[in-house]
Each structure stands twice: as structure tokens, then as C-alpha cells.
Design a protein around this nucleic acid. Structure first.
Ligand SMILES: [Mn+2]
Ligand SMILES: [Mn+2]
Ligand SMILES: [Mn+2]
Ligand SMILES: [Mn+2]
Lengths: 220, 220
DNA sequence: TTAACGATTTAGTCAAGGCTAAAAATATAA
DNA sequence: TTATATTTTTAGCCTTGACTAAATCGTTAA
């Protein structure tokens, strides 16, 4: 069984998150930005992760996560997201406060703890940001979802997740009244700058820039 | 404000626990045994803790914890014991399973997390082993308590804590039916080997060796 | 009052995980 | 195609916290 250090676990999680499409590898600079460490430190870590065979590492080309790596990354995301649910549902944290604390809690090593937590929380399927929580086998029940900018005029849907998890963005959403679960309808789409106006829960209209809208994910 | 690393926090907690009486300092070897590290490693750490002025360190003589150190140690014990309550009360851990996990959880840095946890747990005053939980100011509501061996023949009391927190000991107590909160009466005290027989909750009699009895703490 | 023993500290080493500065490889533009 | 710019890696250094082996201090028994 492969054992990861705290730092290795953090890097692997970052690499997994950065490898959406999958064709070209994840770059050292991207990882550096995500992890807020220097590219030199990333190179060093990539060598280690390569040796442990959780990533495929070809110098000067991006890295790809391996099957084994994917399993470990999903395990980490499961822990992280369950803790986030705990913090929000049980300890009344707001969704913009959980990241830091959950990042630390995620390193606690105890499979039984995570299983019990899952059970205690009622086997939640999504975290406070709408991200899916892998089950104990690493299976993810993903929902089809689109950026709000892709919804057609007069189209309706439900906010199910956010791309940007920064506290600033999440607090902004709180302020304007956008939240996970809200039913929305697109009232206007401005061609010029990509901004949109939406109706939330048939009650409130919100005007938002394209930068905001692309980070809101909607299920039809 | 003094910042401690994880290791420093662990050592300080150990030193605090080992400095009951207070007159003579805690020895390097004692700390080494408690921490399961080598005496050479302890010496190194004592130097660091001395520099941070959380202990008073005179080479070759024991160490004493300072006022500042006591505050930090109590803060750590508060975290540790609150997590233990969480694990037992909410996640159905048994009292012999909590130590390892709580030892990791204790390092999560978030004052708000601990305050919320305290509130969520209903401001518990004692942990699953009967140890008092310091409040946010470091105040400890301690109960007078005696080893079971010190209770006189036919004397009564209530089990309120245990000295030994090893899984083996705690599981033994589970097996014979001794638990925190149990009302007991001393039915017999064997002079020869210090063993005792007690009546638990007016129902069950338990015979136990001196080694067991000294580790059970009773409130009159 | 010393010699020996045990406890403690020092010296030197290692691994993890960061950093900066410099070198090297890749990518891009002339 | 060559020159420049960007990206990535390497080299060397630092800190933390372990370790072993050797030196040193303190205490105790002869
Ligand atoms: Mn999340
Ligand atoms: Mn499954
Ligand atoms: Mn305890
Ligand atoms: Mn108080």
C-alpha cells in the first residue's frame, strides 16, 4: 500500500483537480500556482510522486495522474469534503470559512473516523460547494452541470455548485443571494460583456458580471 | 504570541502531564519514555522549548513548565479532550480508541473550530477518561479524587476517572464492567497484595488487583 | 574521596519540504 | 533557422525533528 506524506497528499490532490481534460499533462507552473509553492519545489515533489508511481512524470512535459494516484486523490477529496459538510452542517461554519480548516483535518489518518463521520452526517453526496463526495470505493456520482453563462435566454435551472471557492467570491454570492439549490431563470444576457441577469426562486433578480457567472454551475 | 510546531506542542503536553507535584523538574528520560523518542531527541527539543520560554531548562537538571507554557499546554489538553468527547459521543468510538485519532486532531489550528466544537458538544466538563476539560480561559474545574486503593473498607464513592489510558487497560475495565460514573462500595481489601473487591451499582461485584485499582480514581 | 554507573548532552547524520540562484530545455519570434 | 523568452530542472542551502555514537555531567557506592 502506498503511503503519502501530508505534502504529497496535498500535491496529489492539486494535480488531480488540475487534470480535467487529461490530454496534455498538468504543468509545473500550474501546480506551483495552485499550491502556492515555488516551481523548484514542485519539480522536487514531482520526482517523489513519480517514484511512488501515483503520477507519470516526464521531465519538462506535464504530469499525468495514474490510476493508483486517482484512487488516492479521490480518497483525499472524500475526506476533505466530508469535513466541509461537518463544519457547515454541524458547527455552523459558512461555506467561505471551511477550506482552511478542512485542509488540515484532511490529513488525520483514520479510515474508521471517515466512515463514522460519513455515517454521522447521513452519507451526504455533495459538499457545501456542490462538489460530489466520493463514496468509500472512490465512486463519484457526478451531476451534469453548466456554467451559468451557457444557459440560454429564458432558460431555467438550479444552482448546484461553484467553480471558484475563494472566500471573496463565496461571500459575494452570499451578499447577492445566490446559493446552492437556488432555482434560477436567465432574464437577460448582455452580448457586449457577457454579463447576465437572473431571477432567483421567482422572487429576486440578480445582475452579475461574466466573471461571476462562469463560476456558477447550473443543472438544468 | 508564542507559536509551537506540532512536535513542540506534543512535548509540552507531555511535560505538563509529567509535572504533577512540581518541586523537582521533569527528567529527560521520563519525557523520552512518554514521547517514545530517544533522550537525545528530547534534549534537543528542551533547548528549543527553553528558548521559546515555555519551559525553564537547566541542563542536566529537570525542566519546569513556565506560566506561559502552562497556558499553552492547557489549550492543547482542551482541544484533545474535546475531540475525545466528540469521537465517543458523536462517532461512537470507544474510550480505548480515541487517543490516537485525538492526538492528530489536536494539531488542527483554529480557535473558532474549538469554540464551536465545545458549544456543539454542550460544553462538556470532562472527557471520556474523566479528565477535566479546561475552558477557553484555561480554567480547570477539578474534582477531588482518590485512587480506589485509598478508599477505606466499606467506603463508597463514584468512579470519575482513570489514570492509565492504555487501550489494554480500558478494554479490561469494559470487560469487568467498571466505567466512569459507576457507584461503588469497597467490600474487601486484601492486605497481602493490595487487591480489592468492590460492589458496582449495588449489583455486581468485581475483584481487582492493586495494579488495576490504583489506576481507578474515585470521588467520595 | 574517588571510581564507576547512569543520565544527559553533544556531534554528526538523515529525510521531508521548503527556498534562491543558476543552468538547461522547450517554446516562440525574427 | 537562429535568437530570445519562458518554463522547468538542478544545485546548494535552510529548518524541523528524528536517529546513533561519543562525550560529559551528576550521583552513588566502595
Ligand atoms: Mn468544497
Ligand atoms: Mn461504491
Ligand atoms: Mn482523555
Ligand atoms: Mn474561565
Amino acid at each position: 500500500m502506498i503511503k503519502l506524506t501530508h505534502a504529497e497528499e496535498n500535491y496529489l490532490k492539486a494535480i488531480y483537480k488540475l487534470s480535467d481534460a487529461g490530454k496534455k499533462g498538468v504543468s509545473t507552473n500550474d501546480i506551483s500556482a495552485e499550491m502556492k509553492t515555488k516551481p523548484a519545489s514542485v519539480s522536487d515533489m514531482l520526482r517523489k510522486l513519480g517514484e511512488k508511481e501515483v503520477i507519470e512524470y516526464r521531465k519538462y512535459y506535464g504530469v499525468h495522474i495514474t490510476q493508483e494516484g486517482k484512487i488516492l486523490a479521490l480518497r483525499t477529496l472524500r475526506k476533505q469534503r466530508l469535513w466541509e459538510v461537518f463544519l457547515v452542517d454541524k458547527l455552523r461554519f459558512s461555506w467561505d470559512e471551511v477550506a482552511e480548516v478542512a485542509d488540515e483535518l484532511v490529513h488525520v489518518q483514520s479510515p474508521i473516523l471517515i466512515q463514522r463521520l460519513d455515517e454521522y452526517l447521513g452519507f451526504p453526496k455533495f459538499d457545501p460547494h456542490g462538489d460530489p463526495i466520493p463514496d468509500e470505493h472512490g465512486d463519484v456520482r457526478s451531476r451534469p452541470r453548466l456554467p451559468l453563462t451557457e444557459i440560454e435566454l429564458n432558460g431555467t435551472g438550479q444552482i448546484v455548485a461553484v467553480n471558484d471557492k475563494s472566500a471573496a467570491f463565496l461571500r459575494y454570492l452570499d451578499k447577492v443571494g445566490a446559493y446552492i439549490g437556488a432555482r434560477i431563470k436567465v432574464l437577460e444576457k448582455v452580448e457586449f460583456d457577457g454579463s447576465v441577469e437572473i431571477l432567483v426562486d421567482n422572487k429576486k433578480t440578480i445582475f452579475m458580471s461574466k466573471d461571476v457567472a462562469v463560476n456558477i454551475l447550473v443543472m438544468l
